[in-house]
Amino acid sequence: MDRQVDLVIIGAGPAGMAAALYGSRAGLSTVMIDASAPGGKLLKTYQIENYPGVGTVSGPDLAMQMYQQSIAFGAEFLYGEVVEVTQDKKVRLADGTVLEAKAVIIGTGAREKEMGIPNEAEAIGHGESFCAVCDGAFFRNKDVVVIGGGNSALEEAQFLTRFASHVTIVIRRDVFRGSVKAQKEVEENEKISVIYHHIPKEVVLTDGKVSGIVLENVQTKEQQTLACQGIFPFIGQVPETSFVKDLGILNERGYVIANEQLETAVKGIYVAGDCKEKDLRQVVTATADGVIAATNAFHAITGM
């Protein structure tokens, strides 16, 4: 099935939903595509305190509010996996659907990075998880390990204390990268301990399930095995941009490069959110990207 629309938005996270709101409200026929439920990483975020004007809100609640508003002016949500975007802005889906667009916004975000150590592939889904909000309840009264020292790691560790007997945070440095507030909360939580100057080297499995993790001291190279039933790595992200790898718009890390108007080197193809090359990745910056990209797409399409 081939269709012609004004604006195709790939990704229904905060960036995509903001773009859908602005594009459709401006009168563009707008289709927003995602292979998962609308919300992106909001669906995996327990609590948000820094989205202006909202106050403290759960990620899923904010996602639902954004989604309802994003389709209020006629934007269509289409469930599907995009496998290719061409130079002439044809968007191909895995089911054979092709959308011909006047403008495309890439807002697919980024997925969590794996540790890349022995036994990890077997451990994923059997004790290793990338979402404490999704899977935390499965680790009730168990010992778990969080890998990473940024805000995500600290916040997820805090959430896990609602279920786990104990949470150990492992970082390779001697200081956290997360906010002062998050650090203070972790330090004051009796159910959390921290192992500094260590990196994960191997997942230990027993009967196909996580039973521990081998850690290495980055200074002495000495190793220790820490018993645990769950591992949660929060060590960075990988952009979800493989479907545009042939367009010449990605940097060496796979992030999309764009100008101040958020337009890529391919005229009519824009980017918004976490898959864009930039320094700060937050919900509020993603929505701002979506607004800028959709507004510039509108001007390009209409000539206004």
Rank of each mutant, 00 (worst) to 15 (best):
V203Q: 02
Y255E: 13
I231S: 09
T220M: 09
E190G: 06
C131F: 05
G53Y: 05
H126W: 10
G212M: 05
K276L: 15
E156H: 12
H126Y: 14
G27N: 02
A132I: 12
V194G: 04
Y270R: 00
G148H: 04
S29C: 11
D274W: 01
H126G: 00
G11R: 03
E81Y: 10
K184L: 12
G107Q: 08
M32F: 12
T86Y: 10
D95Y: 05
T168D: 06
L62R: 13
L160K: 05
P239Q: 02
R172F: 12
D246N: 15
Y46H: 15
L28E: 00
A37W: 08
G136H: 07
G208P: 09
E155M: 04
L205E: 08
S70H: 03
T302S: 12
V133I: 07
V175H: 13
R3I: 08
F163C: 03
F298I: 05
F232C: 00
Y255D: 03
G127R: 05
I269M: 06
V210I: 10
K181P: 00
V170L: 02
A101P: 05
L21M: 15
G248N: 10
M304V: 07
N251T: 11
T161P: 07
S29L: 12
R162G: 11
M64H: 02
D279E: 13
Q87W: 03
N50R: 10
G290E: 03
P38M: 08
A297G: 10
R3S: 13
F163L: 03
Y22S: 09
K191G: 06
E49V: 05
L62F: 13
T287L: 01
T30C: 14
H197E: 13
T30I: 15
C275F: 03
A123L: 08
P239V: 05
L262A: 09
G273F: 12
G230E: 10
Q68M: 11
G268H: 09
Q229K: 13
A94C: 03
V31Y: 03
V238H: 11
F298D: 12
T264Y: 13
Q65P: 01
A297R: 00
K267A: 15
T108R: 09
V91P: 01
I124W: 02
A288H: 11
L154Y: 03
A110F: 08
N296F: 12
R111P: 06
R25L: 08
I235D: 00
G125I: 14
V83T: 14
Q229M: 11
N151Y: 06
L154M: 15
F176C: 00
M304N: 09
F130D: 02
F298E: 15
I235V: 15
G80Y: 03
K278M: 08
V291I: 10
S152Q: 01
G13H: 06
L43C: 04
V57N: 02
I195M: 13
G39N: 14
S152E: 07
A18F: 04
R281C: 12
S179C: 08
V146A: 07
S36A: 15
A286K: 00
P38W: 12
A153V: 04
T264K: 13
F176K: 04
P118Y: 04
M1S: 10
Q158H: 12
V256F: 07
F159M: 06
D61L: 14
F77D: 00
T295Y: 00
G136K: 09
L62C: 12
A37V: 14
D61C: 04
M66F: 14
V204L: 15
